Simulated scan of single mutants.
Amino acid sequence: MQRNADQALQSGAPLQSDTLALIGSEVAAISEIRILPGHLDAVRKAVDSVRAATLKDPGCLVFFATTKEDDSSTIILFEVFRSQSAFAQHGAAEATQRFLAELRGRVERDEPAVTRLQQTPGPFSSSFQRSNTPPRD
């Protein structure tokens, strides 16, 4: 299921109901990392490292990293975990703790701004789709 969800997020196609269901019962979060000048390469390397480690965790269903379209110094992480327990284990994991330590002094507030997500009941949740607008050159 993890790979299917990752592929769906990266494909640009509308999200299918099985991918949306992940957000209904599991723990999902978006983290925003605003990189300070001069630290872009180090932070990107740290993100790559924590992503690789997290995707090996059986509790992780999705870990997607991207930047804002108009601001490559802001990294956005989208993560979905199987349960609250899996999310807590991720937070305590050695790779996550090392990642957070590597961010100190390199990003605003010394850590990501994390927002927990929940699925909104009703028609909004079943109609959620990504934009199919082609990327700008």
Rank of each mutant, 00 (worst) to 15 (best):
M1V: 13
R3T: 14
R3G: 02
R3E: 06
N4C: 04
D6E: 07
D6R: 05
A8N: 11
L9E: 11
L9C: 08
Q10W: 09
G12L: 12
A13E: 15
P14F: 01
L15E: 04
Q16Y: 00
Q16H: 11
Q16N: 11
S17Q: 15
D18V: 10
T19C: 13
L22T: 07
I23F: 13
G24V: 15
E26Q: 15
E26G: 13
V27N: 07
V27E: 05
A28M: 02
A28K: 01
A29V: 01
S31P: 02
I33F: 00
I33L: 00
R34H: 04
I35M: 03
I35V: 00
L36E: 14
L36Y: 09
L40E: 12
L40I: 05
D41N: 02
D41A: 12
K45V: 07
K45P: 00
V47A: 03
V47C: 07
S49Y: 06
S49E: 13
V50E: 03
R51C: 10
L55E: 12
P58Y: 13
C60F: 08
V62P: 03
F63M: 08
F64P: 00
A65S: 11
T66G: 09
T67L: 02
T67S: 06
S73A: 11
S73T: 15
I75L: 14
I76A: 09
I76M: 13
L77S: 10
V80L: 08
S85T: 12
F87Y: 15
Q89P: 00
A92M: 05
T96P: 01
T96E: 03
Q97I: 06
R98C: 04
F99G: 04
F99Y: 04
A101H: 01
E102N: 13
E102C: 05
E102M: 01
R104W: 00
R104S: 07
R104I: 06
R106W: 05
V107E: 08
E108I: 06
E108S: 08
R109V: 00
D110T: 04
P112Q: 06
A113C: 05
A113E: 14
V114L: 03
R116P: 00
L117A: 07
Q118I: 08
Q119M: 15
P121G: 03
P123W: 08
F124C: 07
S125G: 14
S125Q: 09
S125A: 15
F128C: 09
R130I: 14
S131C: 11
N132D: 14
T133L: 09
P134S: 12
R136H: 12
D137Q: 15
